[in-house]
């Protein structure tokens, strides 16, 4: 006993000892599980009508059916494709503009003012314009995702480059780095942490933009699945769609965090 007490006292700030941690994880699950049970109880007793919200069991069953008959897979593929190409487009624009205005004085003078003005527009409010410009097909959806991605990437990349420690640039100059080497080894690496923050925000807005964009006249994709289900009062399918959206968001977030851990290995933790 004395030993374990000494061990705890010796590392006051480290992780809690094993036993407490083992207990802690299940403890955190008590209330979520209780809520689901309560929800199921309310549905089974008829307090919660399936027209308002289906029961957890029904939702799970519907999810199984939607997966089995391929509906969910198809919708998923369509939505993923939209985000992928929207992200690619917006990412390209954000990175190119961010590099141009971060690395060149002229680039900054010409590019930064308009971008800073445009970013104050709520980009989801651009839908009416995008519909007028691009119609109601895939294009306005891509444009919405792209505009949601381009701004956070631009802003964070630009800020990251501007935050470069001038002392490091100075040292590199005296040590004989070429301008290209200064950019590759000093400026860009020092912008990476801030850019990864931008990447995470960009993924968040990408999913949000997708969800909103899929409300406009979609004939395929997760948004279509959800809207269609609404017309038939299938709250179970609506919830399945929402859960898939949430899982997608969590996945990209985890991917960025993984990337962060790899790319920022040099940081002291």
């Amino acid at each position: 006993m004395t030993l374990s007490i000494a061990g705890v006292a010796a590392r006051p700030k480290s992780v809690p000892p094993k036993q407490a941690r083992k207990l802690k994880l299940p403890l955190r699950w008590i209330s979520p599980i209780a809520l689901v049970l309560l929800w199921q109880l309310a549905s089974s007793t008829g307090v919660l009508s399936p027209d308002k919200l289906a029961s957890p069991v029904t939702i799970a069953e519907s999810a199984g059916e939607l997966i089995a008959d391929g509906q969910l897979g198809d919708a998923f593929a369509v939505s993923i494709t939209r985000v992928f190409f929207g992200f690619l487009l917006g990412g390209l624009v954000g990175v190119v503009l961010g590099l141009a205005s971060g690395l060149s004085r002229w680039g900054e003078t010409l590019l930064d003012p308009p971008v800073q003005m445009l970013r104050t527009l709520p980009h989801l409010g651009l839908i009416p314009l995008f519909i007028l410009w691009f119609g109601i097909g895939e294009e306005p959806k891509l444009a919405l995702v792209a505009s949601g991605v381009a701004f956070p990437l631009y802003l964070n990349l630009h800020a990251g480059i501007r935050q470069t420690d001038p002392g490091l640039v100075e040292a590199a100059k005296v040590l004989g780095y070429s301008r290209f080497e200064r950019i590759v080894h000093v400026v860009l690496p020092s912008a990476v942490p801030q850019t990864l923050v931008g990447l995470r925000i960009a993924f968040g807005t990408a999913w949000l933009s997708l969800i909103v964009a899929e409300q406009i006249n979609a004939d395929a994709g997760l948004g279509f699945l959800i809207n269609n289900a609404r017309e038939f009062l299938r709250t179970d399918v609506v919830v399945v769609g929402l859960v898939v959206y949430a899982l997608l968001g969590l996945t990209t977030d985890a991917l960025v965090r993984l990337l962060e851990r790899r790319v920022l290995r040099w940081q002291k933790r």
Partner: peptide
């Protein structure tokens, strides 16, 4: 300099070799 001004994202040996 007073601060070492090493590039934190490059290994120690790389810091010395870069620019050579």
């Amino acid at each position: 300099f007073q601060q070492p001004r090493l590039l934190p994202w490059r290994k120690v040996w790389k810091n010395i070799a870069l620019g050579l």
